[in-house]
């Protein structure tokens, strides 16, 4: 039984989400908000924004496939109803990040080609590890992979992105803040549901730990690729000033406007892995360190 969901309802989701923080929004941001002109006019900056947003669409398409696939694998009615709301959350994320690609100038007819061209192969592999569990209707492994590993990563990545753009791109910052609010429910479901279920299935631990190790490897490889392509600190500071924002953007003690991309990658990886260790430890799963890519 999922006791922690005893009072969860579609009504609760409606009052919190569409009638709460998403009320009066349009694709997750205030109506009329647009991407900064400089970002649209500078080909390099625009391309970089497209590349980043493609990774978000790829990740959210994986989350949509996983959460919808887990509905029929869920052993109890409350989890099925909860996952139905998460499925809609993930579909919304796919839609709002896809809309951002359109706002950045990607044509609808070119969408799939742009996704194929820019999708990080390591992120695709990360998704494949998870979706293999979902395809086998393995609920315990699927929820750990989806709601603890993938959502845990997304939670931290979105927070870092939000800290980096809130001073220079309010439209994208608003889009991200709604997804962060959704992620709170998703990580909460993961920990609470698995926290009780793993006690009933201790034999699943070694397989789940292997999955987490593989997913963590591909996640770190994705971060490494992303930051290798990032503009250096001086270039980012100049861009932030050109965008009319404040250059300081502090996140976990790192100034995102001036830090070296290598230091940003280290801070993100360390924060995500620390969270993994803590979350997995709380539910009785031992974190497995991947080989550093």
């Amino acid at each position: 039984m999922a006791d922690f969901l005893s009072a969860y309802s579609i009504q609760y989701w409606l009052e919190s989400c569409p009638q709460g923080y998403l009320e009066d929004t349009e694709y997750g941001h205030a109506p009329g908000e647009t991407e900064p002109a400089l970002l649209l006019d500078d080909p390099q900056l625009r391309q970089q924004s497209i590349r980043t947003t493609v990774q978000l669409v790829v990740g959210e398409r994986c989350a949509l496939a996983a959460s919808s696939g887990l509905i029929n694998a869920a052993p109890d009615e409350a989890s099925k109803r909860y996952l139905a709301t998460q499925t809609l959350d993930e579909a919304r994320h796919v839609e709002i990040f896809t809309q951002r690609l359109y706002d950045l100038g990607v044509k609808k007819t070119e969408l799939e080609d742009v996704l194929r061209e820019h999708a990080n192969p390591n992120l695709v592999k990360f998704a494949e590890v998870l979706l293999e569990k979902v395809d086998k209707k393995d609920f315990v492994a699927g929820v750990v992979g989806q709601n603890i590993v993938l959502e845990g990563m997304a939670f931290t990545v979105f927070e870092m992105l939000h800290a980096g753009v809130k001073g220079v791109n309010p439209k994208f910052a608003h889009t991200l803040s709604g997804t962060i609010a959704d992620e709170r429910r998703h990580v909460g479901f993961g920990e609470n549901r698995i926290g009780s279920l793993i006690k009933e299935h201790p034999e699943k631990k070694p397989e789940i730990e292997r999955m987490q190790r593989d997913m963590s490897y591909y996640m770190l490889a994705t971060f490494a690729d992303a930051f290798r392509r990032a503009p250096d600190a001086a270039e980012r500071k100049r861009l932030a000033q050109d965008l009319g924002g404040r250059p300081e953007a502090s996140w976990h003690g790192v100034d995102l406007a001036t830090a070296d991309p290598k230091d940003m990658e280290q801070a993100l990886a360390d924060t995500v892995l620390k969270e993994f260790k803590t979350r997995l430890g709380r539910i009785g799963i031992e974190y497995q360190s991947p080989v550093r890519p």
Partner: peptide
């Protein structure tokens, strides 16, 4: 500790109190 939201009460909290985070369903 799950979703990093601050939970507030109209009374001082003390060890042994039970609280619930509505943002992530955690007790």
């Amino acid at each position: 500790p799950v979703c990093k939201v601050v939970i507030r009460s109209t009374r001082e909290l003390r060890p042994g109190d039970r609280v619930y985070c509505m943002a992530c369903f955690t007790r």
